[in-house]
Design a binder for these strands. Structure first.
Length: 489
RNA sequence: GGUCUGAUGGCCGAGUGGCUAGGCACAGCUCUGCAAAAGCUGCUACAGCAGUUCGAAUCUGCUUCAGACCUCCA
């Protein structure tokens, strides 16, 4: 079985392209991170897990990856009509906290949730507030290139002028004419020449707390500037992958391309990778609709739509069971299905220990790795990877049952391959194997030995009492032909 | 209104021309003192209509429906 090459869907070309790094073995990847003004919700898990998988897989393929994911703690305007009030500042004032206090709190919340989901920490996690100077410098470059104008202390990007030389809309497939006729006119845009122009630097109003000095005014950077400035700073003028949610495609990523192209004279990212949304009742889960469920609510089961709590690994597995470019519809029953599937998968992995090697193998273990690679190489098709693993869980069960045979060598290969794919690449954890279970283990084994003696003496009363009391302690006794096994519920 | 995407079995979700996706649920069976658990087996769907083809879930056209973006959003 031959192994293919990694292919990624590039939004720029609207097709799958072979991934060829610009400077192999190094790979640069930039992904838009969260705006830290609210608790992380299920929607945040999608890009985090998707690009975590890409990060892990690229490393598995032998690349040296620098993965940059930003923290937006400044910038995003509430809306253009909002006198330049910044989201962070608005929330801060409501709660009478320092803006940085709010940003820090939610950054920590985000980190905690990501850690629980098994999302590896990026190589660099730059904060927008820590890169104001870089952003001012970037605005200057655009200014010097002639694609910006000043109006009332704010600097705007001149989309029309840019579009004369380049194509504004190349990523989202729009043309300026369409944008002109189809952009709603909003109030409070008097400063701009055209409604489709966007702010590079925004003058702060009197009451605006988050502000920095600049050559133009005391203010703050426009809401697309941080990604251009920070990706350039840490990954260079040109880098391999730029990721983010599909909802950021326009205007955010379109504006980023315009900014970088205006300032540098060329595009910055080679592959634009966008994950699709998680939906709920067929509609996008997001802040604007208010139909989101926070990760903490999921972990604790505290939401009217949840029948029970779901572990972080169940959430991760749920996300991985769909290809990243498809919408994924949330429901409590879908999560329950994911939970049981994951449980079955982990039990299969545990069952590896019970296999007794033979002199020959009736199966071809090397096919597992090749099949997984082929699925993964096809634009990160994790659901197919998982289905292949399930096929092998079936095989493991047959091996345990002696319906198939495997040599000691092949068994070691099988264990190793499954470990790589399940734990290293998919990033799953076996949550039932905790350290407390290890300490508990000899104690439970002792109880089961006593019960086994009782059973041998047909002392069903004692044997059932031991079983019932263990069950009430959350330990499920599983009788087998030779003795008994157990697991924590 | 513009741009784009999608419609797969009870549910979630792969699959781009012919061969079983997978998981969950469900049914039967095996194991078992009983139960539980586990395993095994079964379950053949592609929105509608027309066309291309020896053959279409997969290609083309039309229709219907849904969603995303066009405003902060992962």
């Amino acid at each position: 079985m031959e192994t293919t090459k990694l292919v990624l869907y590039n939004t720029l070309s609207r097709q799958k392209e072979e991934f060829v790094p610009m400077h192999a073995p190094s790979v640069g990847m930039y992904v838009c991170g969260p705006t830290v003004y609210g608790d992380p919700h299920l929607g945040h898990a999608r890009p985090a897990v998707t690009f975590d998988i890409l990060f892990r897989y690229l490393k598995h393929l032998g690349y040296k990856v620098r993965y940059v994911r930003n923290i937006t703690d400044v910038g995003h305007l509430e809306n253009d009509a909002d006198e330049g009030e910044d989201k962070i500042a608005k929330k801060a004032r409501l709660e009478e906290l320092e803006p940085m206090e709010v940003a820090h709190y939610y950054t920590e919340r985000y980190h905690d949730a990501m850690r629980a989901l098994g999302v590896l920490t990026p190589s660099i996690e730059p904060h927008a507030s820590g890169h104001i100077i870089e952003q001012i410098e970037f605005v200057k470059k655009i200014w010097d290139a002639g694609f910006a104008y000043e109006s009332n202390g704010s600097i705007y990007f001149d989309v029309e002028k840019y579009n004369e030389k380049y194509h504004y809309g190349k990523l989202s497939g729009r043309n300026l004419d369409d944008i002109v006729t189809n952009t709603r006119s909003l109030d409070g845009q008097d400063d701009k020449k055209h409604s489709y122009d966007f702010a590079l630097w925004k003058k702060a109003s009197k009451e605006h707390i988050m502000r920095w000095p600049s050559p133009w005014s005391d203010g703050f950077p426009g809401w697309h500037m941080e990604c251009s400035a920070m990706s350039t700073k840490y990954l260079g003028e040109q880098f391999d992958i730029h990721g983010g949610g599909m909802d950021l495609m326009f205007p955010h990523h379109e504006c980023e391309i315009a900014q970088s192209t205006a300032a540098l004279g060329h595009d910055s990212a080679k592959y634009w990778v966008h994950n699709n949304m998680i939906t709920i009742n067929g509609k996008k889960m997001g802040k604007s609709l208010g139909n989101f469920i926070t990760l903490e609510q999921l972990f604790k089961g505290e939401h009217e739509l949840l029948t029970k709590p779901f572990s972080p690994m169940t959430i991760r597995f749920f996300v991985l069971q769909a290809q990243y470019r498809s919408t994924l519809d949330f429901s409590s029953s879908a999560l329950e299905a994911a939970e049981k599937g994951l449980d079955r998968l982990m039990k299969g992995v545990d069952a590896l220990k019970k296999i007794k090697p033979s002199k020959s193998s009736s199966i071809k273990v090397e096919e597992l790795d090749a099949a997984c690679h082929n699925a993964m190489n096809d634009d990160l098709n994790t659901p197919v990877v998982i289905s292949i693993i399930f096929d092998w869980i079936h095989t493991i069960n047959q091996l345990v049952d002696s319906q198939q045979t495997i040599t000691e060598e092949d068994l070691a290969l099988l264990k190793n391959t499954l470990n790589v794919w399940i734990f290293d690449i998919l990033g799953l954890r076996n949550e039932k194997q905790s350290s407390s279970a290890d300490k508990l283990s000899p104690v439970v084994d002792m109880m089961l030995e006593i019960r086994q003696k009782a059973k041998a003496e047909k002392n069903w009363a004692l044997s059932d009492e031991i079983r019932n009391r263990l069950t009430s302690l959350g330990i499920r006794v599983k009788d087998r032909k030779d003795g008994a096994d157990w697991e924590i519920e």
